[in-house]
């Protein structure tokens, strides 16, 4: 019988290629910075995000339906933005990239600066993350409603590039939202003993599922941010007439 394969000699050490250390902070600063600037521009300079049956996530829920005409986005975007600003992943990203606390692991910072972590204002307010989660869940309901509406054209059911974008966006946003550490705590993380709780199997499996999604929370954070950005930009370009929506069905 042949010898089992691969036991003769180990392969030479796995040399992992690494990005230079500055790539991550520069990338984060650029992406978050540009998105913030874009958000401000989108929120303060537009009075509608509606294009036929498409509604931009910046403008959902549409507060104009209850008579508010002044900068309709601003009444909405604070919730998801603060949800993201207090998100455990984004906190890591901006502490590292914007505040260099630390810029990257085990590299000298500028010692001697005062550092108080999350014990003083403003960062101590990050403890309010869960409340922004609650509000965001409400917003999510509207976004799902919008996503469904994006498939209902005046002529009936249809699929456009915009409908697919909106659907993808709301899926990514949902995964991001429900993979949140605060939600993980809420569904089961706060328990010391799952078996001692009411509905032990349900609590445990919920917690386990959220934990699994939570492992890639950073990925969902970035993907959903870009999907919001992309969806809004697409609809903005439709409104301004630069693009025409392509109907696939």
């Amino acid at each position: 019988m042949a010898q089992p394969a691969g036991v003769l000699a180990p392969a030479p050490g796995r040399k992992k290629w690494e990005w230079p250390w500055w790539v991550s902070p520069v990338g984060t600063v650029s992406a978050l910075g540009l998105f913030s600037i874009y958000s401000v521009w989108e929120t303060l300079t537009h009075s509608s995000g509606q294009y036929h049956n498409y509604l931009s996530p910046f403008f959902s829920p549409d507060v104009r339906s209850i008579g508010i005409q002044f900068l309709p986005a601003i009444w909405v975007v604070w919730a998801p933005l603060l949800f993201r600003a207090t998100c455990y992943y984004y906190r890591k990203a901006y502490y590292r990239s914007f505040f260099a606390d630390p810029l990257t692991c085990a590299r000298p910072e500028r010692p001697g600066r005062s550092y108080t972590g999350e014990t003083r204002l403003p960062f101590v307010l990050n403890n309010l993350h869960r409340f922004f989660f609650y509000v965001t869940v409400v917003v999510m309901a509207f976004l799902w409603y919008d996503a469904v509406r994006a498939f209902i054209f005046p002529s009936g059911f249809g699929i456009g590039v915009g409908s697919l974008l909106m659907l993808l966006n709301v899926i990514l946003l949902s995964i991001y939202t429900f993979s949140c550490h605060a939600f993980r705590h809420l569904v089961g993380g706060s328990l010391d003993c799952f078996s001692c709780a009411r509905g032990p199997i349900l609590r445990y499996s919920l917690w386990k599922t959220v934990s699994k999604w939570n492992q890639d929370h950073a990925t969902w954070a970035w993907l959903s941010m870009f999907s919001v950005w992309g969806t809004d930009l697409y609809i903005r370009l439709l409104i301004s007439g630069v693009l025409h929506d392509v109907r696939l069905f």
């Binding site: 906190r91 590292r96 692991c105 085990a106 014990t119």
Partner: peptide, 24 residues
């Protein structure tokens, strides 16, 4: 113990030889 001093930047999780998810 000062858990508030941690700003969850996860370097501890990166170096742990036992692959413990300290931060998360």
């Amino acid at each position: 113990a000062g858990v508030g001093m941690c700003n969850i930047t996860k370097c501890c999780q990166e170096v742990c030889p036992e692959h413990i998810h300290l931060t998360d």
